[in-house]
Write a protein that binds this DNA or RNA. Structure first.
Lengths: 345, 345
DNA sequence: CTGAAAGCGCTTACAG
DNA sequence: CTGAAAGCGCTTACAG
C-alpha cells in the first residue's frame, strides 16, 4: 500500500501523542490512559504500523530469538528436532533461526558466528566436531548455550540428548538371538560424541556375547547417505560378508540400502540391516527396518526449556533421555511373525 | 572469556583511533591507512570483537537476510527446497530465516509478520492459502516478495515453480497402458494452487483417455500424512475400489501406504500407488514408488536469484520449470522388468 | 498518565 | 586518511 515504512514517529504524529506514549500503549503497559491507548491503536492500525524489531533489539539488548545449528537439514531426525524446537520456542515467545552445518565444521562455524553477530539470546547446537574452537569459545562466552544430541566432553555447557547404549545392547541381543554372529557397523565421525558412543556401545555389547568387532567391520561414515553406501560396498566386497550391518543413523541406512539394492542383493536374506533413528519411512521399506528410536520431539522441547532457563538467569541441567529398540524385519523374521510372506508384502 | 560484549568503541579505544576509522577498517574500505588498519585488526582480534549486526542493520536499513516461509518442514520436498535456498542465499551474501507454516494459514501469517518486523530484505513464500490477506498485503507492500512452489493467482509477484501438468499426463498414459481404468486422486487443499492444478491436470488427462473422475475418486487431503491415510481408507471402503491412487505429494503417499498396509493389502497387486515429489526413500519402499519428480534444488536457486534481483532494484521474472515422471513399480510392472520377482525384493 | 531526552552500536556524509 | 557528529527506531528512567 504505502512505499515508505511507517515508524513509531508517524504513529505518534497521527495519534497526537509522544513516541513514549505510543511505545507504552503498543507494548500493553498499564501506565497509559484508555483514551490514549485507543488513539494509538487506531493510528497504528490505519497506518499499517509494524514495530521495527531490530531497533527494539538494539535498545533492549534482547532479540527474543534463539539460534539452532543442526548438523544436516536433509536428515529427517534433525528436521523433526528443528520442528519441535521451533514449536516450543514459539510458545515461550522466541523465534528461532536455523543454521544448517551440513556436517561440515567450517559451515557450522559460519553459522555460529553469524548467529552471534545477530545477537541471539541463546544458542542450541549439535556440534559437528569436538574440537571446533569456535564452538568451544562460544560455550565459554556470555551467550547461553545448550548442546543438543551431540556435545563436547569436558564442557560445562548443559547437554540434552538420548542415550543409545541400552538400546544398542538390546539390538545386539536381538541379532544374536536370530543367529547372527558376524556383525558390522557404519560409524559416524570419530570427532563426534554420537559417532564414538554408538561404536563403543556396540563393541561392548558384542563382547558381552563373546563376539568381536574387527577393524574390517567398522565402516567410517559421516552420517550422510553417500558414506553409508560406500561403507556397505566395502562390507559386501569382504571375502566373507557380515550377517548384519548396523548403520548408526537413518541416512547411512539409506545409503546401505542403495548399495545392497545395486548389487541385486536382498535384505535380510543376503544381509541384514539395522539403523539408528526411526523415521516415518522405515515401516515401508523393503523390508521394514529394525531401528533404534530416539524421543526426538521431547529432546527438542527439553533443550529449548533448558536454554530458556539459562537465558533468564536460572541454572539449567543436562538431560539424558532413553532410546529404544524397534524390531521390524530387516534383520530376519522376529519369532511372532509367520515365517514366510511377511517380508514380501 | 569476557563477560561483557565488546563494542566498536572498545576496539577504537584499544587501537587509539576513532570509531569511524575502526568501522571503515573493519568493513574493508580503501580510505584507511595500512597502519591504522593493522592496529584495528589486531585490537579487534585480541578483544574478540564481533560486529553487532542489529546495530548495523538499523543504521543501513538492510539486514542482508531473507525470509523463507515454507508449508511444512517435515515434508522432504520443502526441506530440500530450504537447503537449496540457504545455499544459494549464502553465496549471495544473505542469511535466511525459515518459518514453518505447518500447512496452517494462521501460522503462516505469524511467520510473515515476524519476518517483516525483523526487517528482512526480501521474502520467499509458498502461500498456504490463496486468500491469505496478510500475504496479499505483503505482496503489495514495499518488501520484495517471490512466491515459490505455490502462488496467488492475480498477484504481480513473481513466482518460481514447477509445472506438473505434462508429467501428470504422462502418468495417466502410463497407468492407462498398464490397463488401469479406475483412477483416484488425493488432492491438496483447494485453497492452494498446486492443490487445484494437480487435480485439474489429472482430470484433463483422464478425459483425454475417455476416463471420468467421479467425486468419490477425489480425496480431499491437506498435503500431510494423516490426510493421505484417511482418503485412502475411504477409497478402500468403496464398493469397487480404484485400481490406482495418485497422491499429489509425498507425505500423502506415505499416509496411503500406511492405510494400505494396515488393511494387509499389497501394492500394486491389490491397489496401485503413484505420488508427486520424488524423495530418496521412494526407490526403497515396497514396492518402489512411481512418482513425479520436481527440480527442487533448481527451484530454490532460481527463487533466491529472482528475489536478490528484486532486492537490488532489478526486475524479476517468473520461472516455470518442468517436472517429470519417474516410473518405478508401484502401479504395476513396467514392460522392461522381469514379470515376477522384482517387486518382491 | 505523559513527554523530553538519552542511548543502544553502528555507518556515513561532512570537514579538515 | 581521519574524526566529530548525526541519526537509524526504538525503550525507559526521570520529571512533572
Amino acid at each position: 500500500m504505502n512505499a515508505g515504512v511507517v515508524s513509531i514517529k508517524d504513529v505518534a504524529k497521527a495519534a497526537g501523542l509522544s513516541v513514549a506514549t505510543v511505545s507504552r500503549a503498543l507494548n500493553g503497559q498499564s501506565a497509559v490512559s484508555d483514551d490514549a491507548r485507543a488513539k494509538v491503536l487506531s493510528a497504528a492500525e490505519s497506518l499499517g504500523y509494524r514495530p521495527n524489531i531490530v531497533a527494539r533489539s538494539l535498545r533492549t539488548d534482547r532479540t527474543r530469538t534463539i539460534g539452532l545449528v543442526i548438523s544436516d537439514v536433509l536428515n529427517p531426525y534433525f528436521t523433526e528436532l528443528a520442528r519441535s524446537v521451533e514449536e516450543e520456542a514459539r510458545e515461550l515467545g522466541y523465534s528461532v533461526i536455523i543454521g544448517n552445518a551440513d556436517e561440515r565444521a567450517e559451515l557450522e562455524a559460519h553459522h555460529v558466528r553469524t548467529l552471534l553477530e545477530r545477537r541471539i539470546d541463546g544458542l542450541l547446537v549439535s556440534p559437528a566436531d569436538d574440537h571446533s574452537p569456535l564452538t568451544l569459545d562460544v560455550a565459554d562466552g556470555p551467550t547461553p548455550v545448550v548442546f543438543v544430541d551431540r556435545w563436547i566432553p569436558g564442557c560445562a555447557t548443559p547437554v540434552v540428548r538420548a542415550d543409545g547404549r541400552e538400546a544398542i545392547r538390546d539390538l545386539v541381543a536381538h541379532l544374536y538371538a536370530l543367529g547372527h554372529r558376524r556383525l558390522a557397523i557404519i560409524a559416524g565421525p570419530v570427532t563426534t560424541t554420537t559417532g564414538r558412543e554408538r561404536v563403543e556401545a556396540f563393541r561392548a555389547a558384542l563382547s558381552e556375547f563373546g563376539l568381536l568387532l574387527p577393524e574390517s567391520h567398522i565402516g567410517r561414515g559421516d552420517f550422510q547417505t553417500r558414506s553409508g553406501r560406500l561403507a556397505t560396498e566395502h562390507f559386501l566386497d569382504l571375502p566373507k560378508r557380515p550377517d548384519v550391518v548396523f548403520a548408526t543413523d537413518n541416512l547411512m541406512a539409506l545409503g546401505a540400502l542403495d548399495a545392497i539394492r545395486e548389487r541385486g542383493l536382498r535384505v535380510p536374506d543376503d544381509i541384514g540391516l539395522a539403523a539408528f533413528d526411526d523415521i516415518p519411512w522405515f515401516p515401508h521399506t523393503a523390508p521394514p527396518i529394525t531401528t533404534i528410536s530416539q524421543p526426538t520431539t521431547e529432546l527438542g522441547r527439553v533443550a529449548v526449556r533448558a536454554l530458556a532457563d539459562l537465558i533468564s538467569g536460572k541454572p539449567a541441567r543436562s538431560t539424558v533421555l532413553p532410546a529404544h529398540l524397534v524390531v521390524r524385519r530387516s534383520c530376519g523374521e522376529p519369532e511372532t511373525s509367520a515365517p514366510t510372506g511377511g517380508s514380501h508384502t
